[in-house]
Design a protein around this nucleic acid. Structure first.
Length: 494
RNA sequence: GGCCCCAUGGUCAAGCGGUUAAGACACCGCCCUUUCACGGCGGAAUCAGGGGUUCGAAUCCCCUUGGGGUCACCA
């Protein structure tokens, strides 16, 4: 029974994602958030966003807002958090300093925590000495039993103490991980008394996290595997306070191309959510892909919407082993969503993208034009960001002829086809789907060319490449005026 | 190095003592198509190794090997 739990009340699960605002939301963080969200929602519980900004030096100004923005974009909405509020406010560590202070006092009064005056240099020297002896680096407990005189002496030197938690000497810890099962830790493997308040007066992650999770009634903590070794320390704290700890689940890591944990500094891979967003990836697709990375609902399906994922999500099916992040598969999933969505919907994403990618938008571009342009390429690209590249020829005045197109147009018969086509284009009264189609038949009669010999020269002259979307529709989109200009250019330049 | 975690094709993965070891991405081939894509069909490709347990192991146990995480007044 937890203090906040009323008699007979069924406890709702509460999970949180607690990023530190030191950078951008990356794939691994997003997936952790996603799993927490999926489980919370699957259980009909609550998902909470908390900002852990206890590392003042590394905090980045608007990182927290960006995290929130990208999390929302992905489709992860939280029930409580810094901007939406909630019953456990505030949701930002640095606004909870007083709270932490109270709990630190409790520990100190009970003799479970003590001031440590060791300087950074002294600690480093101690660590080096142990490493030199091939021992595990571990705090010696130097300040465990300082006399009053020693304390006064340190204070007189102007030293600012950190507060350490007194780890029981015979400490054995084990807990049942939601994903990995029983986990045991040998005594002495935990590094000795650990710091809970830095000499700056700011608590460390391990301390703030425990106090916050308890006060916020978090029932399940799902986090990356790199936190496994923090868990014993946090468990000590729960024990010291007499609190029932939440259930812990450690999710495997997402691996980069080198087989190691994704590093924010690794530039060989696009790993920030915002980057995919900027490339025109659809949030539903990223959501879908991330959910299936390290978890599987079983069966043969690859495409699931959010509601289905929430319904299917099960901790038992979360993988223990790490998973390589595969941008190609993500691209494929995104392509599937791209094909299935309405052009009108896609336009909402596309318009800002185009405005950002294309300078000096030609004035023939309006929503109707954009819609047609997009639909021409909809099943040929895997993300909207590829459209300005793939469909570039429609944005510029004259096409950029590639080598194949050039050699095509060098052929005598090709010249004749283009010449005849130009003649018919000029004489056609209107420019519609219906009027374009017969022009090809007319050219065929005039020149005797048909099939590839007929279509390719026109494609080359009009679009600059031998491959591309449907020719009739392309010419319609191009417009009669620009097409004529291109045909003339093709004839005069060769 | 200590402690801890992990191990089915190149990648994501299904499989929970008896299967010809699913499916998807990527790759290759064929078909469709005026081109390229899309789509369809087909192909190559996996149980890290060694011991047990068992009538029978990808599935259970042990060891080895390999990979990873962590050892901060970072989270």
């Amino acid at each position: 029974m937890r203090p906040w739990q009323k008699e007979g009340e069924r406890m709702t699960v509460r999970l949180r994602y607690a990023p530190s605002p030191t950078g951008h939301l990356h794939i691994g963080g997003a997936r952790t958030a996603l799993f927490n969200y999926l489980y919370a929602k699957h259980m009909g519980g609550e998902f909470i966003l908390r900002i852990e900004d206890t590392d003042l030096e590394r905090n980045v100004d608007d990182a927290a807002d960006k995290f929130a923005d990208n999390l929302r974009w992905l489709g992860l909405e939280w029930d409580e958090g810094p901007d939406v509020g909630g019953t456990c406010e505030p949701y930002i560590s640095t606004e909870r300093l007083e709270i932490y202070g109270e709990y630190v006092s409790v520990l100190r009064q009970r003799g479970l925590a003590y001031a440590c005056y060791c300087s950074e240099e002294e600690l480093a020297a101690e660590r080096d000495a142990r490493v030199a002896k091939e021992e595990m680096p571990r705090y010696s407990g130097h300040c465990r039993h300082l006399t009053e005189a020693e304390v006064m002496d340190y204070e007189a030197q102007g030293r600012k103490p950190a507060i350490r938690f007194r780890v029981p000497d015979d400490a054995v810890v084990s807990f049942r991980d939601l994903i990995r099962g029983e986990l045991n830790f040998e005594p002495g493997s935990m590094g000795g008394d650990f710091v809970i308040v830095k000499s700056s007066g700011i608590p460390t992650y391990n301390f703030a996290c425990v106090v916050d999770d308890h006060l916020m009634a978090i029932t399940h903590v799902m986090r990356g595997e790199e936190h496994i070794s923090n868990t014993p320390r946090q468990l000590f704290l729960y024990r010291a306070f007499g609190w029932e700890p939440p259930l812990f689940g450690h999710v495997s890591l997402i691996l980069g191309p080198n087989g190691k944990k994704l590093s924010k500094r690794d530039e060989s891979i696009v790993q920030f959510v915002e980057q995919y967003r900027n490339m025109g990836y659809l949030p539903e697709a990223l959501f879908n892909y991330l959910a299936l990375l390290g978890w599987s609902p079983g069966g043969e399906r690859e495409l699931y919407d959010k509601a289905e994922l929430v319904r299917e999500f099960a901790l038992e099916r979360v993988h223990k082993s790490g998973a390589y992040f595969d941008p190609a598969k993500l691209a494929w999933i995104n392509a599937q969503y791209l094909k299935s969505q309405s052009v009108a919907n896609l336009l909402l994403v596309l318009r800002p993208l185009v405005e950002r990618f294309v300078r000096d938008l030609p004035d023939h571009i309006d929503d109707v034009w954009l819609a047609e342009w997009l639909s021409l390429y909809q099943d040929r690209i895997s993300s909207l960001g590829e459209l300005p590249v793939a469909g570039r020829t429609f944005l510029i005045r004259l096409p950029e002829l590639d080598d194949e197109a050039k050699s095509m147009l060098n052929q005598e018969t090709a010249q004749a086809v283009v010449r005849a086509f130009l003649r018919h284009v000029e004489s056609v009264p209107s420019w519609t789907k219906e009027t374009i189609k017969p022009l090809f038949k007319a050219v065929q009669i005039d020149t005797g060319s048909k099939g590839k010999d007929l279509f390719m020269p026109i494609r080359a002259a009009a679009l600059g490449q031998l491959q591309g979307p449907d020719l009739h529709r392309s010419l319609l989109l191009l417009g009669k005026g620009r097409l004529r200009e291109r045909l003339q250019n093709a004839l005069s330049s060769s």
